[in-house]
Each structure stands twice: as C-alpha cells, then as structure tokens.
C-alpha cells in the first residue's frame, strides 16, 4: 500500500474540485479499503465524502429520492421504501452482511468493482492490467457472465440493489464539473462491447448525489440464488413483478442480476408477457427469449435455467408479495 493524502470534503463543490488524476472518492470504505489492501486501487489522494451528508430518504411528488450516501440498511428499513419498493428492500437485505449494510452507501454499492476471482486474485485480467488478457475465456467460468461486456471482460456486476433499482426504473442524479445530469441505470454502466472493464461511465469529479425512484411502479420482489445462504454474491438474481387483470398480464417488470456486467433489464421478456394470460410456461418462454441472444461460455450455461427459475419466483402472481 503506498502513502496517500486524505482530505475530507465539506461541500459537493469542494469534493468535485478536489478530484483529479490519481484521486478516489471514499465513503463508507467497504469497497475502497479492501481494494487498497488488495492492491486494486493506488490513489494519491482519498477524498472523504461522509461529511457531505447526502444520506436522506425523502418522499417527493413524483416518487422517492434516496441520497447517494444513504446507508443501505437505512434504505432497507425505511417505511416508504418498504411500502413502494419492497424489491429494493429485499435486495439490500440479501446482500453482504449486516455490518456491510450498516456501513455501505447506495452509490458506493452501485459503483463497486467486480468480484471475478481472476481480478481479485492477481491473475491475468484486462480490468486489472489492460492488455493482460481475460483469464475467464480458458479458465474457471462458473461466476462469469452469461452475457459478457466484451471479449475483454466476462465479469458480472455484483450488486443486488442495482438489479432491484433497474426493475424500478430508478434514475441517477450526478453532479460533476459540467453541472448536474440525470442517467438511467443502464446509462451508468458501459455499453456492450466496451474495451475497458470499468465499474461505470462516471468520470473523475462525477458524484452520485441521489437516486430517484419514480412513483407508480410495480413494487416487485427480489429472488437471489447463491451457493451460500448468506454473505454471498448471486449466481443469478431477479427483481420485478406483475399486474394481472382477469388473469391477463397488463404490466410486467423484470431485471436479472448475475448474468451481465450490469443489471439486465428484460424489456423483451416484459413485452412478451404483457397482454397474454399468465402461465408458468409463458414466464419460462419470455425469459428464455430474453436470453436467447446469449452465447454462453460452457461454464455459464446453467445460468439460463437458473435465471428462468429466479424470474419465475418474482413473476409468480400466487407468490408472497
């Protein structure tokens, strides 16, 4: 670990101004501190964001606003979140550990690096050392993506809350050098085919100050399939829900996790579901169609069936709501 400067930011403007080459933002440290220890991050300067606050959860006319630095556990236990976005509360409850959820912030969770063991374990990895090659192609693929970013990286995005947020049409409010802008969750992450495996498209000085959950969305559920009963990342997860009228699907939302470098919003599956009478078979066909574009690595093939089952759990009108 090399010696670095530490600076506490007292305003958003100060934080943005302090950012530059070699700097990194620090919030709870649940992501940054292990990365420093493991040699994944070599900053010259850490800019501490915690003095900024930005951790409120407020009801607005058009939905809910979650502060970028809101603690995960505060979000998961907030009555407004539990009422209008239970999928998000559930996704948080199933992520990390109680200690991590109590410390970790929402924005930090969305911007975390991948858990690919090659990236974490100092093996050849384009994300860690661009040009060194992706070991997954010829190596262990069990935790890799069904739909990789590109030939250069096959890691999955590890966040649970991001999957729920994708199903809820959340938008991200970013403050940067050029002022304020709003991104969809899909826009936060790199576009397919990108060469560099970066956690997001944000640039130095960009700060997520809030997330907006629009009103009137399906509250949804979250299903997570993992090897270990707790403290484990998803093999596959699903967030979303349905609204039926007379047995016919009139509204559907579905996002999948554990299958791509970003939470995967399933627009095609949603379109197949809406307007048809609900059946377990219909859900299976819709998810299969959504994933039909995937050309999975041999070691990730099983995730198609897992994704179908995870989706079936959240798109089951008879299931617990």
């Amino acid at each position: 670990m090399k010696i670095f400067d530490y600076r506490a930011a007292n305003s958003v403007a100060e934080a943005i101004a302090a950012a530059g080459p070699g700097s990194a933002f620090l919030a709870a440290g649940t992501e940054v501190v292990p990365a420093l220890r493991d040699g994944l991050l070599h900053p010259d300067r850490l800019i501490d964001l915690l003095p900024l606050g930005l951790d409120g959860i407020e009801r607005r006319d058009d939905g809910l606003r979650l502060g970028g630095l809101a603690r995960l556990s505060d979000i998961a236990s907030h009555p407004e979140v539990l009422a209008s976005a239970p999928a998000l509360a559930s996704a948080i409850e199933q992520s990390g550990t109680a200690a991590i959820r109590s410390m970790g912030t929402l924005a930090g969770n969305l911007l975390q690096q991948v858990r690919c063991p090659y990236y974490r374990g100092a093996a050849p990895c384009n994300r860690r050392a661009p040009g060194s090659g992706c070991s997954v192609a010829r190596g262990d693929q069990r935790h890799a993506a069904l739909m990789p970013l590109s030939f250069h990286c096959a890691a999955v995005h590890p966040s649970d809350p991001a999957v729920a947020l994708a199903s809820l049409d959340a938008t991200i409010v970013v403050e940067g050098r050029a002022g304020r802008r709003t991104l969809s969750l899909d826009q936060l992450y790199p576009a397919a085919g990108a060469v560099l495996g970066v956690p997001s498209v944000l640039e130095s000085g960009d700060l997520i100050i809030a997330l907006d959950l629009p009103a009137g969305r399906l509250p949804g559920r979250y299903a997570k399939i993992r090897d270990r009963s707790s403290f484990d990342f998803a093999l596959v997860s699903a967030a979303g829900g349905l609204r039926l009228e007379g047995g016919v699907v009139v509204e559907a939302a579905l996002a999948l996790g554990g299958i791509a470098w970003k939470p995967w919003r399933c627009r095609r599956a949603e379109a197949m579901l809406v307007g048809r009478p609900w059946s377990a078979d219909l859900v299976r066909q819709a998810v299969a169609a959504e994933l039909s574009g995937a050309t999975p690595l041999e070691g990730t093939r099983f995730k198609v069936e897992l994704a179908i089952r995870a989706a079936a759990t959240v798109l089951d009108p008879g299931g617990p709501s």
């Binding site: 974490r120 374990g121 100092a122 262990d140």
Partner: peptide, 19 residues
Amino acid sequence: DPALGRFVAKGFGSYQIPV
C-alpha cells in the same frame, strides 16, 4: 485453472466456507 496452473481463489471472497 489448468491453463494458468494456479488455484483461482486466493481469499475468503472466492473460496467459500459455510457461514
């Protein structure tokens, strides 16, 4: 990993034991 000749996991994050 037979190509690299190394154990892939080198920590508790990837080598899992029961919780």
